[in-house]
Amino acid sequence: MKGLCECEIIAQSEISPGVVRTLLTGPEIANEAKPGQFVNVQVARTTTDPLLRRPFSVHAVYPDQGVYSLLYVMVGRGTALLNKIQPGDYVSVVGPLGRGFDLGDSPDAEHIVIAGGCGAAPLHFLCDDLCNKWGCEKVKVLTGGRSKNAVLCEAEFRSHGVDVAVSTDDGTYGHHGVVTELLQRYLDNDAQRTTHNAQRPFRIYSCGPHAMMREVARICAEAGVHDVQLSLENNMACGIGVCTGCVQKIKGPMKNDKSGQNWHYERVCKDGPVFNAEDIIWE
């Protein structure tokens, strides 16, 4: 049955300070994963501390070779342990998990992908599929980071042949400012270009820090762009939907609720991690 596999680490390389790309074997994951889905990795096999698996988005897949890659930032003990695993060794992986991005069914849409920091991880895979499905000329990437080093995967995005715009908070590279300013500017320009109200049907995809995605949601709502998909995170214990730990507050009443509340919780690991921006209740 699906779900649990032993993946050999083929290589790990630090592509930027503290940012690691890992290539692993895993034919099922490479063949079945959809952009925006993630895997849950056991970072240490012989100890109960750390106990829980760590979730990482699928960064790229190579179905023909039966391999896939992850891109992670070393932030704590789990990621440090993962980084110590040598090529040739195996890790236990559960996945692919969760509900990924919906690439839409309209050939007229223009797809804008907005990455913040390590939020670029799932978006490289997404760009790949978007280009294959709709053609690279329909895809635009806006990617940002605190500083030049934190702008991840720019070369990979460009390798698809898509248009890429970059921003850094400190101005060391690209636009000096946050990446959502690039989005704002792009939508403003588009509004000027288009005569009367006939805006092009945009589809927006984003992954990154919470504050950034919240701003993406705000800008899009203001601009009347409705197809906005955000990949969220929360602390995960199981990653497979059984513990109800990783929830996000979502609009609309809970099923069978009689108390009249107009919200409910959904699981990021199972009902997400990709949610529609208009459904999210931010706090």
Binding site: L51, A237, V247, Q248, N256, D257, K258, S259, H264
Partner: peptide
């Protein structure tokens, strides 16, 4: 009746264990 459960974060890892405060979210 359905229970909404607690606000998040609801789980955190601790040495060789974890804490949870799901608050019995269930559909009833």
């Amino acid at each position: 009746d359905p229970w909404f459960g607690n606000p998040y974060p609801r789980t955190v890892e601790t040495p060789s264990g974890m804490l949870n405060a799901i608050g019995l979210q269930n559909d009833g």
